[in-house]
């Protein structure tokens, strides 16, 4: 059960990332615009990237909850 749960979380994350990095969401950031002089697309991609790593870190390193303790 524990493993299945983790597998689902990771699969969800990958789908979410794929959507965030595809048309049409990507087109919102794909403009000649700046954020503190830095191109918006560049900022957007790195933000998504950093967010992805954080999410992966939390999911990978999380201990199974109390509910799963008996498994």
């Amino acid at each position: 059960m524990k493993d299945k749960n983790k597998r689902q979380k990771f699969t969800l994350i990958s789908i979410l990332l794929f959507l965030l990095l595809s048309f049409p969401i990507l087109s919102a950031a794909n403009k000649i615009a700046y954020w503190f002089h830095i191109p918006s697309l560049y900022v957007y991609l790195f933000l998504v990237w950093g967010f992805a790593i954080l999410l992966l870190y939390i999911t990978a390193e999380s201990k199974p909850g109390v509910k799963n303790k008996n498994e």
Binding site: R7, S14, L21, L45
Partner: peptide, 17 residues
């Protein structure tokens, strides 16, 4: 060019399954 590294990032989420 970032696509070459964002792809592996998505894939690393699938490393587990």
């Amino acid at each position: 060019f970032l696509g070459y590294y964002l792809g592996p990032t998505i894939m690393s989420a699938l490393f587990w399954p």
